[in-house]
Structure formats: structure tokens, C-alpha cells
Design a protein around this nucleic acid. Structure first.
Lengths: 334, 334
DNA sequence: CTGAAAGCGCTTACAG
DNA sequence: CTGAAAGCGCTTACAG
């Protein structure tokens, strides 16, 4: 069977304690013994058993990440960032796809608990009381990513309200006076409401009108909602010259719908998105959007988590900078 | 500290063996003891330690998945499928992002070995001799996903040559006679060469010309290559009325370039892609493409892996069906 | 510099 | 039906 530390010890003619020391770069052996042991390891093709190691109480070198959807561009770029940092730290990442399902999330939490992960990243969902309790039970560091809560876990995200404000302001500075918004899930306390507030605030600060029909509410942040909703929007607010979509997918839906309606973007209608996912640059026309540093969010979240794991203390929350990526979907009005 | 099986045993006034039996639904206790034990578990909020369990030699309920890029639409949909099946099986998935880097891949393999994963899915990369050796050392089932090799691991993929043939044939049936191909990484033995062969074969079967300049070779399957390459293609092959792009990203690049060149798709140039990633439906015009069942590939690969884990025997390789998704990027020529 | 031994939290024969 | 004990593969004081 697979060689164990005993086999190595026997082959090298030392005790398992010595092998362990060498494996863990602890002091206490001569160069000569080290050589012998390394040689035995090599010959036997020995690989230490991480389970046994973890059992002793050391870390498992594994973190868990919970995403509502693992197959969205958003999640996958964030995951990319997390994975990069974890790799630098010789840690593995277990991904969990919750489908925004409470029961499923609880089950994942249980699994991650049993596997004794060193920490948790909880991304892009609302932290319920039940999740919170379970996480407290686990007694490991957790960081919230692209979400926030009143519970005492640090988060990393961009300021949605300010970012939405920026997007709207950008449109205003390009000369637009009749601006509409496609809001996404408008009752979502994380990604819905704050973006709407930012939009409203910008309009107000610039003394521009914000009617009821300036904002059209959807049930999701997805492409099809954007597509579905543009005709309705234009019907109620035909003077609109620009729309701020609360996600890139929504924006792509809007552009797609405009295309079908024979409305030229940006000549007749300007569109700005939110996220700067990979698809924004592939859009026709290339989509102007307010960028979230997605990979950066993942990296920051993972770094924060590892710091907590190392120090045993919490870290401050972090707001990441958004920025406007100018492409070709917004026209400057003279 | 965290309660262990001992604490539960003490509280319920039984031995740890009995607790273990109840935990694992083995026979050998009265309803009454079971009740007591369950109660103790509940009160102590006891969670079994998966590390200790795994150490005994039982499975770790964890599989490892290796992707070249974790943040591509392709990978993330495949991962979605894998994760679904793993969840049904109460298993976790560790994702590894190899960046197509040999050293990094070897390191991941080492980590996964140390963590004693129950099996491996190796996706979308070429299985080198070194990887193969390491995997054999690990002595766990592995399945190849969207790739194949002469080594004796089962694979699941679509038949690239036939799928490419279908795409080309589709264009021919739409009346196109001058068809070009944007090939992606043309020396890639998995996704490069077979698609080129399929393209050539279709042209030949229908007695259509295939010149040197009918195929333009890229270094990747990415958007920017498609974008960069269209002008070159058209320069050498101006009569082309349709192009088969070896990936959706490539196709989006072609469409984007056409847009900038003032060439209308599909009126002046038809484009068919390959993959049917999420972005295909968001393209303008919506992209006709030959679909790989991405989530299905992930599910099939994971199912095969778990079957191997359960039975200890290999399973047959599997070719998944591709199919053409007709959208609006191909024009019928009269 | 080195080893014997206890212990991490479980499961699994074995014996009763 | 139930428990004592060995053992999974390591790490960590402790003693020399």
C-alpha cells in the first residue's frame, strides 16, 4: 500500500519523529540524516497524509467558498482571484454552489464544518440569521465578499451606491438629461437598493427629473430581463436618451432589444452597464460600464481571510474602487 | 473546545463505538439508546470530524478538478455540472486553476494527493506524460473531460471533428460556397487539429474549394484573436461569404471586427461559432453556433468518476452529442 | 541530534 | 445490543 512515515523511517534507519522534523523543516538533525531521509522519501515516493496532519490540530490548508451561482462570469472571475491567493498560500479551495437555496447552503456549511476548513468566503448573497449562526458554530474566520451585513464579519466589496452614482453622473456629464435605469432585482438590499439610491441621488444633485417611470424594476440581473424590459421602458419614457443598467448582462439585454427594435446604440440610445464582466468588451458596440475589480475582489477577500487565519484576529472591512471603463455604448450629446 | 465523539458518548452514557454505529447507520442498538445519543449530539452541537474519518481509510468525499482557466465561461459551466453531481453525492469539489502551467499542475496534483481526494477530473488540457505518471501514483480514478489521450483513462467529450464537420455542412446547406475558417490554436491536438480536419472534410465531401488561405490560424481561442484576424482573412479571401470560427469567443471577435469594418453580419458575412457559451445568445446578432452540452459534460464526467470510485473499475469513454443552435448570424444564400 | 510515547477523533473487528 | 482496544498516519512535548 501507500508508504507512510513509518516506512520512510525504517528505510532511513531513523525514528518517525526525525522524519517528521525534516518534513516540517524543524530543527534537530544533521545534514547526513536529512540526506538519508530525503533519499528514502524519494525512493518510496512518499507523500505525507494531509488528513493525519490536519487531525493533529494543525490547519487543513483548505478554505470554503460559497457562491450563489458558480457559472456566472462574475463568480468565475472572483473565484479566479481567490484561487490565485489560495495557491500562493498552498491552500485548496472547495467551491460550493448554493443556487441561493437556504437548505442547500446549510448543507454545504455542515460539510465544510465536518471537513474542518480553515475559513470561509461567503460571496454575493444575503447572510441570513441561520447561516450566521452556523458560521459562528464553526468557529473559523469568515469574510463576506460583494455583500455585507450587520453581523460582525468583515466584508470586501465596492460601494454600490457610489458606483451607481458615478455611472449616472458619467451619463450626465456626457450631456444626457433624460436618463432611465434598469434596476435588476430592486428589492435586493445589497445590489438592488443601493444602486437605485445612487442613481436617484445623482439625478437629484444635478437637478434632473426622476419620475416613477425613470426606473424599471426587474426580477433579476440577467440578460433576458434587460431584453424584456426595454420596450416597456421606452413606452413610458420615450424621451430617454440614456439608460443605466444595474449589470452588464442587463445592459447587453437592453442593447439586444434595441437592436431588434431598430434603435441604434449609442446614436439613438446610450447605455452604461455595471460590473465589467468579460462580455462587456465583447458587446457590440463595446459596452461602457462601471467596473468592479472582480479578480481584485477575490484576491482581497482571500488575503483578508488568510490574514485572519494567521493572526486569529479580525481585519477591517474593505471598500474597493470602482472605475468607469469607457467604450462605445455612450454618445456625447452636444 | 469542539465536542468529539467522546463527549457525546459520555453525555449519552454509552461507548464511542455505539455512537459511531448510530452516526453511520450501522445496526446494533436499541431505539432507546439511539434516542439518547441523538439527543446528546443535538445538545452538544456535535459535528463529526471528516479528517478522522478519512484517516481510517474511508473515502474523503472530495474530488479534485483541474482546469486550465477557471474564469472562462466554458470552465464555469462545466464546473457547474460537476458540482451538481458532487453535491448529490455529498462530496466536495476542490478546483484547481492550472493556467496551463506544467509546474503549477504538478504542484496541484501533489496537493490533491496529500489530501487524499477520492478521484480527479482533468479538463480541457493535454495530458502530459508527467501528469499521467503522477496520477498513476495517486492511485485514484481519473476521468478526462473535453480532452483525450492514449493513456488508459476514460474521457468524456464531444467529437470535435464531427462537430466541426456539422458546422461547415450547415453553412454549405445554407448556400455558402466560399467558406473560411478561423481555427484557434491550430496545433492543439484536442481542440485545434480535429476541428480543422472536420472543416476540410466537409468542404471536400461537398467538392468545395479549400485553399491555404481558407483557414487562418491563431494562437488562442480568444476574442482578440478573432478580432485581429478577420481583416487578414478577408484580405486573402475576399470572396468568402461565411466563416466558421472554432470557438464562440473567436466568433464574437470576428463579428466585432466586422462591425468595425462596416461589414454587416449576417447580410454580408455569415458567422457560425463553436461551444454555445452563454455569450453566444447575448451577441449581436445572436450567434448561431454548434453547441457543446457544457453542463452535461460536467455532469457526465462527474457521474463517470463517481461510478469508478464506487465500483473500483474503469468505465467506458463517452462521446456527447453536439447540436446546432440556430440564431441569427448566418444568412441563407439564394 | 534523536527516539519512545501519547494523542488527534474516529472506525472496526473481536469478545461478551 | 454493547464496550474495550487497536489502529489510521501523523505531530509534539519530554527525556536523554
Amino acid at each position: 500500500m501507500k508508504p507512510t512515515i513509518k516506512d520512510v523511517a525504517k528505510k532511513a534507519n531513523v525514528s518517525i519523529a526525525t522524519v517528521s522534523r525534516i518534513l516540517n523543516q524543524l530543527p534537530g538533525y544533521t545534514e547526513e540524516t536529512k540526506r538519508k531521509v530525503l533519499e528514502a522519501i524519494e525512493e518510496l515516493n512518499y507523500k505525507p497524509n494531509a488528513l493525519a496532519r490536519g487531525l493533529i490540530g494543525k490547519k487543513t490548508q483548505t478554505i470554503g467558498v460559497l457562491f450563489p451561482y458558480v457559472s456566472s462570469m462574475l463568480s468565475s472571475e472572483i473565484l479566479d482571484g481567490i484561487e490565485n491567493i489560495a495557491h500562493d498560500r498552498d491552500s485548496s479551495v472547495i467551491v460550493c454552489h448554493t443556487a441561493s437555496n437556504g437548505e442547500r447552503t446549510m448543507k454545504y456549511l455542515q460539510m465544510l464544518h465536518e471537513k474542518r476548513v480553515d475559513g470561509l468566503i461567503f460571496a454575493s448573497s444575503i447572510l441570513t440569521e441561520a447561516y450566521y449562526q452556523r458560521m459562528v458554530d464553526m468557529n473559523v474566520p469568515v469574510v463576506l465578499l460583494s455583500t455585507a451585513s450587520s453581523h460582525p464579519f468583515p466584508f470586501v466589496k465596492v460601494d454600490d451606491e457610489i458606483a451607481a452614482y458615478s455611472a449616472t453622473e458619467y451619463l450626465i456629464q456626457k450631456g444626457h438629461r433624460h436618463i432611465a435605469m434598469v434596476s435588476g432585482s430592486s428589492n435586493d438590499p445589497i445590489a438592488g437598493i443601493p444602486r437605485i439610491e445612487g442613481f436617484k441621488k445623482a439625478l437629484k444633485d444635478y437637478q434632473l427629473p426622476c419620475h416613477d417611470h425613470s426606473i424599471i424594476h426587474c426580477n433579476s440581473f440577467g440578460f433576458y430581463d434587460g431584453q424584456r424590459v426595454l420596450p416597456l421602458l421606452l413606452d413610458k419614457y420615450p424621451e430617454a436618451t440614456a439608460v443605466f443598467a444595474a449589470s452588464d448582462d442587463l445592459a447587453m439585454g437592453v442593447i439586444s432589444s434595441a437592436y431588434q427594435l431598430g434603435i441604434a446604440v449609442p446614436q439613438q440610445l446610450s447605455v452604461i452597464g455595471y460590473d465589467n464582466t468579460r462580455s462587456a468588451e465583447m458587446a457590440i458596440p463595446p459596452l461602457t460600464t462601471v467596473a468592479q475589480p472582480l479578480v481584485g475582489l477575490g484576491e482581497a477577500g482571500a488575503s483578508m481571510l488568510f490574514e485572519m487565519i494567521d493572526t486569529g484576529e479580525s481585519v477591517p472591512s474593505k471598500l474597493m474602487e470602482h472605475y468607469i471603463v469607457e467604450r462605445e455604448s455612450v454618445k456625447k450629446l452636444e
